Amino acid sequence: MKLSAEDLAQRARQIRLVGFDVDGILTPGTLIFDEQGRETKSFHSRDGVGLKLLQQAGLTLALVTGRQSSIVTLRARELGITHVFQGVHDKRQVMDTLLSGLGLHWEQLAYMGDDLPDLSVLCRSALALTVPEAPEEIRAAAHWVAPVGGGMGAARAAATWLLQARGEWARVLERWAD
């Protein structure tokens, strides 16, 4: 969905919660199992920095995934993300409950997802974000598409874009330039 830069910036300033799907957003989406059936995932370190930047800007983060993985629990703990929902079949219901519990509304949510289980959340979010390899239906619903793929720095790119749209990027850079 196309919006003007001014409309996107206005929406960005209202965001208080940023939700992320995991597989296909924070990871490349490839499921890797060893001979014992143990799953492994790869995460891009720059995505972790991007998520920390959002937290430092005062935004609350949530991970919402259809799969169940101890690796996701570990990564969320490393990043200080407390709102982690795994094994989710209805992401819209989970986000609705989380928003309500935090005293927030859909107009205060930015969400990044890459496939049909994310569509209902993307369609309700103030800012719908995705990756270039997402199916056409997802890209059509998105307000912004990352310049790189899932697990390749897409979440970092989204964090940078969101902070720039909110007018906070210069302040973020000052912290690192000292």
Rank of each mutant, 00 (worst) to 15 (best):
L116R: 10
F85Q: 13
E35H: 14
G101V: 10
C123L: 12
G103Q: 03
S45C: 14
C123N: 12
T60Y: 07
S100F: 00
V64C: 02
R67F: 11
V84F: 07
Q108M: 07
L61F: 09
G101R: 05
A110Y: 07
T73C: 12
K91I: 11
K41M: 01
L74W: 13
E107R: 09
T82V: 15
T73I: 05
G58L: 08
S100P: 02
G37E: 04
V72I: 01
T60E: 04
A62H: 09
R77K: 15
F43T: 06
G103F: 10
E107T: 06
D118V: 00
G113C: 04
L119A: 03
T82D: 13
I81E: 07
A57L: 05
G80M: 09
D114E: 03
C123H: 14
D118T: 08
P117H: 05
L63G: 01
Q86D: 06
I81Q: 09
R38D: 05
S100C: 15
I71G: 13
G48F: 04
L74R: 14
G37N: 08
K41H: 00
L54Q: 04
L61H: 00
L53N: 07
G66Y: 07
L122F: 02
L122Y: 04
I71P: 13
V121H: 01
L119K: 09
T40S: 15
G48I: 02
R92W: 12
A110L: 05
K41L: 02
S45E: 10
D118H: 01
T82N: 12
R46Y: 11
L98D: 02
V84S: 02
F85C: 11
V64D: 08
D34P: 04
R124V: 10
Q86I: 07
L74Y: 15
G50C: 02
H105S: 13
Q55I: 03
L119T: 07
Y111R: 00
V49F: 15
K41R: 10
L51N: 03
L99S: 12
S120P: 11
K91T: 09
D47A: 00
K52E: 12
A57E: 06
H44D: 04
T82R: 13
W106H: 02
L63N: 05
L79G: 01
G101L: 11
Q68F: 15
T60P: 11
T40N: 02
L109F: 09
L102H: 02
R75Y: 03
K52G: 11
